[in-house]
């Protein structure tokens, strides 16, 4: 890169190798969402996986009875912030798909409030993604996606759909809400797949 901004020296040279290009380390937890925060009672909460042949649902108590993983991971938001070593508890997508058969390769995640985001199934299985309900030892706050959000930490964080209520299997990759509004179809932070 040959461009240099006159007079700019920058503040930090502690370049952490865990930071993808264009990202800045933060210690707070910024919020990105396009509308009001939905108010969802766990008594009403339900999570559904819908396939070409039917659907499988869990209520909150059934969900809590599934095998729960503790996850420590870095997260990267498209708006240029990253947090390192965040800790979560949630149910692996692998665990959820033990009960599900599908021939489709693509997933649309649906959220309370109507938001959607698309992810290939391969990007969710194999220990790569969870439905998380705890952050830093506390129940996930509503503004951060509680009671439960998708956690797909190897992709930009908008793919980790807040207030998630289900996954819909699709034969082809279709853009979700954020992707229709300018975000990348895939969203790999190491390739800076921010916008299309």
């Amino acid at each position: 890169m040959s461009f240099i901004t006159r007079g700019f020296s920058g503040r930090s040279r502690e370049r952490d190798e865990r930071l993808p290009p264009g990202q800045t380390l933060v210690h707070d937890f910024p919020v990105l969402s396009a509308g009001p925060t939905p108010d969802i009672d766990t008594a009403d909460w339900e999570f559904t996986i819908r396939t070409e042949s039917g659907s499988q649902s869990w209520n909150w108590d059934e969900f809590m009875a599934l095998e729960i993983d503790e996850v420590s991971t870095d997260i990267h938001c498209v708006t240029h912030w990253s947090k390192l070593g965040t800790s979560w508890r949630g149910v692996s997508i692998d665990t959820l798909f033990e009960h599900v058969e599908t021939g489709y390769d693509y997933v649309m995640a649906h959220s309370y409030g109507g938001y959607t985001t698309n992810v290939p199934l391969d990007e969710l299985r194999g220990g790569k993604a969870w439905v998380a309900f705890e952050f830093d030892g506390e129940p996930l706050e509503p503004e951060h996606g509680g009671p439960a959000r998708l956690l797909v930490p190897h992709l930009y964080f908008w793919k980790s759909a807040k207030w998630v209520r289900g996954l819909e299997m699709m034969p082809t990759d279709e853009p979700g809400f954020w992707e229709q509004n300018g975000y990348h179809l895939h969203g790999d932070p190491w390739k800076e797949e921010r916008y299309w």
Binding site: F3, I4, S9, G10, R13, R15, G22, H80
Partner: peptide, 14 residues
């Protein structure tokens, strides 16, 4: 906006 220092260090904000 992306700012670039002489040593290639960059900082980007929206």
């Amino acid at each position: 906006v992306r700012l670039t220092a002489p040593d290639g260090y960059t900082a980007t904000r929206s």
